[in-house]
Write a protein that binds this DNA or RNA. Structure first.
Lengths: 203, 203
DNA sequence: GTTGTTCTACCAATTAGTCGGTAGATTTCC
DNA sequence: GGAAATCTACCGACTAATTGGTAGAACAAC
């Protein structure tokens, strides 16, 4: 049995992450999946329905990854390094972050989709804020770090690095940024931890 | 006298920065400028010609701003804060960075345009690397900072913050990220400097 | 009167989305 | 268990609108 809906979601996601939301068409998607254009409408009535489903699936995958990192990595800096490694997967595959791509085209997008994206980012900011606060309490993160603004700065740096290094220096460039980022957060006495092996499942 | 070419560049830039390259059309641009669609082709034969001119003008404006900051701000952290304030202008106006927008749609863009964008980012990385190296030598930037990777991290954080905070917390969110970024670079003994008043001219 | 600018009027291609219909399962009901 | 009804997945053939781009005439300015 062939799960067409899943194939559509998978291929649509890579198309959006490669070329943007306005940059791919139902015709493109139909061709890569090997189905007729009209049949896509059977699964996703409109393009924005498809986009919603895309964000929901992406968000769910990240939820799982975030929970996994929290469970596997005891150290705050290790958790942030592992979180950054999720983005590294995108650089390696030549794919931007789905939500960053959609955020950039924000103005031209349906408002409900924008709300989904805001929710995605705010969830990640809250997660990082918690990680940083715990890290400060445990003494592995610099005491002068403010968890709120720094959480925003961390995710901004990773989103920005994914955006840039995909075109510039690739994975090597991204790893440099991630290391510089972690080094700036670590408390003076704390020992660096290695790069984690966390991966976002699909793609 | 009415400089149509300049008006086209100005309006096209805001359209791209709001909706993306694939997200605006010659019809949109014609309407905002108050000209017929065919007349645009007289000034910019193809859409990618227009995009090239857009990047060239944007790049030139940043060149001037970078030189101004270097001349006016003696301190490395002050220079980076001033550089970040350029991006703040985008957040306030609700506009993304032109090159970030184009970078995201990279795969769907003409290759020559991609090269322009790579050049833009590399120039800024080199500028920041110089600023950081001088700052370390002067003692206002943490000695453990590595100028190369950290320069990439700084621009990534600013690009990412512009991307995100345009949708999330606006200028206040961006300022928080900028402060957290600068705080992470400053040497322990160094005194914080205020936010500069540097602005990118047009828009 | 020539040069630069803008216009009207068009073009072929592509866009998202609709239409009526079909083959094959699955369910319902006697 | 077998007929009838319903549902799922897909298709070819559309549509109206929009896409970037072209040809040639009108108009302006020096």
């Amino acid at each position: 049995m062939r799960d067409t809906r899943a194939a559509l979601l998978l291929q649509a996601e890579t198309l959006v992450r490669r070329r943007g939301y306005a940059g791919f068409s139902y015709a493109d998607l139909a061709e890569t999946v090997g189905i007729r254009k009209a049949s896509i409408h059977h699964h996703f009535a409109t393009k924005s329905d498809l986009a919603h489903a895309l964000v929901a699936a992406y968000d769910a995958r990240y939820d799982a990854a975030l929970a996994g990192i929290r469970a596997d990595e005891p150290d705050a800096i290790g958790r942030i390094a592992a979180y950054g490694a999720l983005y590294l997967g995108g650089v390696e595959a030549g794919l931007g972050c789905l939500c960053a791509v959609l955020a950039i085209e924000g103005e031209a997008l349906p408002a409900s989709l924008r709300a989904d994206i805001v929710g995605f980012f705010e969830k990640h900011i809250a997660w990082l804020e918690g990680v940083l606060a715990e890290g400060i309490a445990a003494g592995c993160v610099r005491a002068s770090v403010e968890p709120g603004p720094t959480a925003r700065m961390v995710i901004a740096a990773l989103e920005g690095a994914l955006l840039m290094e995909r075109l510039l220096a690739g994975p090597a460039g991204f790893r440099g940024t991630l290391t510089a980022l972690c080094d700036g957060l670590r408390a003076a006495g704390s020992v660096p931890t290695g790069v984690s092996s966390h991966r976002i499942d699909t793609i």
